[in-house]
Design a protein around this nucleic acid. Sequence first.
DNA 1: GGCCATACTAAACAACCGTTTTAAATGTTG
DNA 2: CAACATTTAAAACGGTTGTTTAGTATGGCC
Lengths: 210, 210
Amino acid sequence: MSQTDTVSRILDAAEVLFAERGFTETSLRTITTTAGVNLAAVNYHFGSKKELIQAVFERFLTPFTGALAAELDRRVAAGEALTVEGLLESLYRVGMGSLAEQGRDPQRFMRLLGLAYTQYQGHLRRFIVSRYGDSYRRFAGLLAQALPGLDPVTFYWRLYFMLGATIFTLSSYDAIEAILREDFGAPSSLPETLERLVPAAAAMLKVNSQ
Amino acid sequence: MSQTDTVSRILDAAEVLFAERGFTETSLRTITTTAGVNLAAVNYHFGSKKELIQAVFERFLTPFTGALAAELDRRVAAGEALTVEGLLESLYRVGMGSLAEQGRDPQRFMRLLGLAYTQYQGHLRRFIVSRYGDSYRRFAGLLAQALPGLDPVTFYWRLYFMLGATIFTLSSYDAIEAILREDFGAPSSLPETLERLVPAAAAMLKVNSQ
DNA sequence: GGCCATACTAAACAACCGTTTTAAATGTTG
DNA sequence: CAACATTTAAAACGGTTGTTTAGTATGGCC
């Protein structure tokens, strides 16, 4: 078994288990037996559990922010007008696309993002902000430009409202979808849900502005 | 030290520590030393850690849902027209009021609510749904009535968007407020934030309907 | 083929976890 | 005051945690 095999097997198992149960609730022994590798391999390759957690986030956030930057570059270069709806669509489409093309589950990453915000892991928040803060600020800046005349403080609060609606809903997508399917017999696919989310989030951002 | 003293001292400490770090990350030893009681007191009075978690939620959800029901009764009896904004205001006002009058921190409960959704604690979700599901369904029903003509599936997705925006934002209120105060020098009080949240959430619920 | 860095493994480590047990203290009731 | 049930206390329980150690295997390079 080559090194990359062991490393990525650990990352694959950790990604799934962390998203399912959280970080503290997932032991290294569960991860390594799921991955079919030795317990000590985690500390050997990653150093510690904290660094493994960061590596899991790095593996999906780096391609994601890269693809988002490319998408924004493309639209800016093409001289397209960046509307609120257009920016949200870009964000969600890149989120679905850049991960789906690796054959991995987009909503698993939403769960991980939600955990990054809610779990008690100071190192994770610091890691993400220092590594991906620029991507976040660029997107926020473009979104603010699409909402001229809006008070900055109000804009940022609404940005957090929007992030909350997105992360919260998509990270519990399976559970919510199951409830609605049982109550109304109408299944909602993830793309359909995002099509519902875009206008709703845009309306929240735009209310009483312009 | 009387029994009620020990019990409520444990609940007080557990409430704060759970909200800060989550359930798994908070040990019974940390709780009991913070509360100044013996370690075994938790198992003696509550049975287990799971039941302590449920007791923490029960102590704030029961007064809250009771006050919300009274508020809704009052407005229905007065024949008031229940608008989307009015219902959201009732929800938030009761949330602030019923807890603040006990001298306890409202946003701490938002953090706990957020944890109840995101943490891996099946028993908690079951406990809350079975105990407070009726309150939730009544509020959701009144909100749906205030949005006539809206497709039920779309309504429920938007309800989750709204819950996500609320719980996510308010559970991280301290952190967000600190960032905005540093960047803009403009502090935002919790009531001010809720005044921003009501129209934003209402716009999200109402877009393209009526 | 010998060498060496890299990769892996099994075993043990100390620390911490929730829970239980046993005994002492306390309060209540007849 | 005596008898009882309730509450508190100290100590130990078995189990799990992340991490480390020491030794073995592996694969490329001179």
